[in-house]
């Protein structure tokens, strides 16, 4: 059944979902088509709609959180599960159809070949000329700002620090499952933390689709809070000692 190439490695795709009943099934079937060798785990983050039902109907594994706890915590739950079940590589993508499952393969091969620990799907990467991601000026400015800051701090070009489309190794999952992980708003600060913890990061060009009928994570008063929170988080990350992250990455699953 499984792809012979991937037989040795157990791979899990993690989809945190909060009220994604319209898109979740489509995302899962996309993964089944483009990455049939992956197990699929949906974290139902206390959805009030039919997200869990739709996901269950596709045969994916589901973890229910008893109440809505936010993207980062849902994601971390997925990583805890992956560690418990002994997965070697994990891919995280959103349940809103923004992340095209076609690129799972590319992200995975970057981590599986050992050239990097974290492969981040970037919609703005230079080699990604065939597609232009359209976003409001506020969002664009925000991404540009944090891209510049992150790139400066880790001394490596990061064009899309807000991307939640990633493939990671088990080692990184251990770090994500530790208390060092900023559960409330994982974003550019995570990239800096990963860098400080000594992980290698590589960007892979991907295409992201615009959310059709979605309240963005960054809407209303949120952008202001987001910018403030991100500055604070990056600042605090820089203040913390390197050893803290290394300890964190080793503690959970020795």
């Amino acid at each position: 059944m499984k792809d012979t190439l991937n037989k040795a490695a157990k791979i899990l795709t993690i989809i945190p979902a909060f009220n994604e009943e319209h898109t979740i099934a489509q995302v899962i079937s996309g993964i089944k088509v483009h990455a049939p060798y992956c197990d699929i785990l949906v974290i139902d983050d206390g959805s009030s709609d039919a997200t869990a039902l739709r996901a269950r109907a596709t045969g994916a594994k589901i973890i229910h959180l008893p109440f809505n706890m936010g993207y980062g915590i849902a994601l971390q739950t997925g990583y805890k599960y992956a560690l418990e079940k002994g997965y070697h590589y994990m891919v995280q993508l959103d349940g809103d159809g923004q992340h095209d499952p076609r690129y799972i393969e590319g992200l995975l091969s970057a981590v599986k070949s050992g050239e990097t620990d974290v492969a981040i799907g970037s919609r703005f990467s230079k080699n990604n000329e065939n597609h232009v991601y359209r976003a409001g000026w506020m969002k664009r400015t925000g991404i540009l700002l944090f891209s510049a800051i992150t790139s400066l701090i880790i001394k490596q070009k990061v064009s899309d620090p807000t991307s939640g489309y990633q493939a990671i190794t088990r080692k990184v999952a251990q770090f994500y499952a530790s208390e060092a992980y900023p559960c409330d708003y994982p974003d550019a600060d995570v990239i800096i933390m990963l860098n400080r913890a000594g992980f290698r990061i590589k960007e892979i060009p991907v295409v992201m689709h615009q959310n059709k009928n979605k309240k963005s994570m960054h809407s209303g008063m949120k952008p202001l809070y987001y910018v403030f929170k991100m500055f604070l988080s990056i600042f605090l990350t820089l203040l913390r000692k390197r050893e803290l992250f290394n300890q964190g990455s080793g503690r959970v699953c020795p």
Binding site: I43, K61, I62, I63, H64, L65, P66, F67, M69, I73, Q76, T77, K80, Y81, E84, E179, C183
Partner: peptide, 16 residues
């Protein structure tokens, strides 16, 4: 909050 978070996650994992 950290304790509640860990409990909720553990709860989800156990239920699964």
């Amino acid at each position: 909050f950290t304790q509640v978070k860990n409990l909720a996650q553990e709860n989800g994992l156990l239920k699964q």
